[in-house]
Amino acid sequence: MKKNYNIKRMLLLMLVVLMAAACKTEKVLPKQEALKDISGSWQVIKATRNGTDLSTLVDLSQFRINFDGVGYKLMNKLPFIVTQDGAFSLDDPLYPYKITFTAAGGTPISTAFTYPIVNGKRQLSLTFSPGCTNNSYIYVLQRVN
């Protein structure tokens, strides 16, 4: 009977030791967040107007926006945040959530911007109103291969 009691105590002790040993502090390596580089040529792969899908209604395939360093160029224009070529900037190079376009000779225009990776490819999602402010458009852009 006494022996049995000892085993129980031993087991309890082992359990405590095991549990204590389980708590191991893991060293988290500080990982450098990559700079968000949006340079290159982008095309519209999806567009909505007030929630209506425009992809089947208009030809979006020819539009291109080329980001290069601090400038951008538009080709085969569509209704967009800006109508002229100019400069752009991100509010934060690591965690950008706003992009600002400054057309040559124009005033800066900022817009909400997300930068998800979908199917292994970066996408740029821009929300803006080129005409009436209550008409809201979302363009999803992807780099041209």
Binding site: R49, L57, P130
Partner: peptide
Amino acid sequence: PPKSLDNDFVT
């Protein structure tokens, strides 16, 4: 849209 400008897509 019922209200739009010339820089909107109009259906």
